[in-house]
Design a protein around this nucleic acid. Structure first.
Lengths: 238, 238
DNA sequence: TCATATAGTTTGAGCCATCAAACTTGGAAG
DNA sequence: CTTCCAAGTTTGATGGCTCAAACTATATGA
């Protein structure tokens, strides 16, 4: 597995904590953008720095062959940058899983904790953690955990807004790390693995009515429902 | 429990990773010095910087009220600095214990790993870890783990060189973090908890002969034996 | 086509932690 | 006493990351 903790002679750019954070941000932005490129201002916002700082850093990443980019153009990960980003993702998600599974921390708060630890964990500890957890394939939010070779199996599942009323579904993934939102999701029984039924859709109100098993029905704005992915359940299974 | 992760208004000195490392070093040096003070050059060596850098940093620690010191004088921890150092020690030792107990990593390599993680772990995660481990009182090296109030119960036990030949002892602590030495200790069955018998002492050769239960007898230089602490066992117990 | 707003870039500065090298102290040995 | 050395301090510089503010390119739309 590739380690970010060794500066190779051919690349003078250290994999510092800052570098790792930029790579993570660029990876996420490339995923969700139509063009597959990340805009400078989005990178800056996500990392939490000014755009000037982001420009400077992206130039350094370019020098280190982590990204491809030219003045006023979009930023794209190279194969090397992609590998590095996936490695960070693996660390982050295994740590989150550990915090929930082994330490019983609240599902909705582990993201921030993992954010700090992911930069300090070595390959040796990481693999021991992976083994301890039984080589999990998804983290507590339903996000896929890349394997040690860097392979990512994106979770299947469509957004809750895409199911016709009446469908019974199993929640598979929550695509948002906001603590408030995650707490809300947990409170209404919509964590990954939960079973729920789409009661109705109300397009004028931009919301749907949903009922998780053993929870009262609630109405959910499209914006929120869109961040919850699920799979339909045939009434016969489970 | 005191957290180093919040800069309080009254102290403009951040508890950065560097600051934590200096505090740990100063704590260790004050313990083992006769005067209870740490010499600048020793601090520099332990932290791994030049003495000039250490001087600069100690001045900053003084400004932050972590230590007391004046030009050309020794360095001493204040109550605040002592608390901070003990907090770091607690993090370090709990992490080491976790790495050995939960992740089954080799006893002799966990020190370096803990060194990296101790700066990234938050109070919340730390307390969860402590609970998960059952509130252990010593780490794998036999070093005491400070409790969450900052109390440290130093382990009892005398150095192996202090027992008369024939004594049966239980190893309680290894006072050295060198990976080589720890591996040696493990290889000959002298980890904390092990039972051994002092076979003979050979003052001219500056060594003792010792035999761990189920291991062949070995000869051990005073220098090495001095770093292994143990308690005598009455033949009736265990 | 031109003006302009928006996105991006550059520059000059600062902070943190570090080093090398020049300098200063204090004490021990003669 | 004086000398001298080891220990400690200071200074000037660097690298990494950041900001604010001045500047520039691009695209949109009038």
């Amino acid at each position: 597995m590739m380690s970010l903790h060794a500066a190779t002679p051919e690349s003078p750019v250290l994999a510092t904590e800052a570098v790792e954070n930029y790579l993570k941000a660029i990876y996420a932005l490339c995923r969700e953008s139509a063009t597959g490129e990340a805009a400078m201002s989005r990178i800056a916002t996500l990392v939490g720095v000014t755009t000037g700082t982001a420009t400077t850093m992206v130039k350094k990443l370019t020098a280190g062959k982590f990204v491809r980019y030219e003045r006023f153009g979009g930023v794209k990960l190279t194969v090397k940058g992609d590998k590095a980003a996936i490695d960070i993702l693996r660390r982050h998600r295994l740590i989150e899983t550990f915090l929930v599974e082994t330490l019983n921390l609240d599902w909705s708060v582990v993201h921030a904790e993992a954010e700090r630890l992911e930069h300090a964990i070595s390959p040796v500890v990481l693999e021991a953690l992976d083994k301890h957890l039984g080589h999990p394939s998804v983290d507590p939010h339903g996000d896929p955990i890349p394997d040690s070779q860097g392979g990512v199996r994106e979770a299947r599942g469509k957004s809750l807004t895409d199911f016709p009323p009446g469908t019974r579904v199993r929640v598979s993934r929550i695509v948002d790390q906001d603590q408030q939102f995650l707490a809300f999701v947990a409170k209404h029984g919509l964590k990954p693995g939960s079973i729920a039924r789409i009661v109705a859709a109300d397009p004028p109100a931009q919301s749907i009515l949903i009922e998780a098993r053993d929870y009262p029905r609630i109405s959910l704005a499209f914006a929120a429902a869109g961040k919850i992915l699920a799979e339909p359940i045939s009434t016969f299974s489970a």
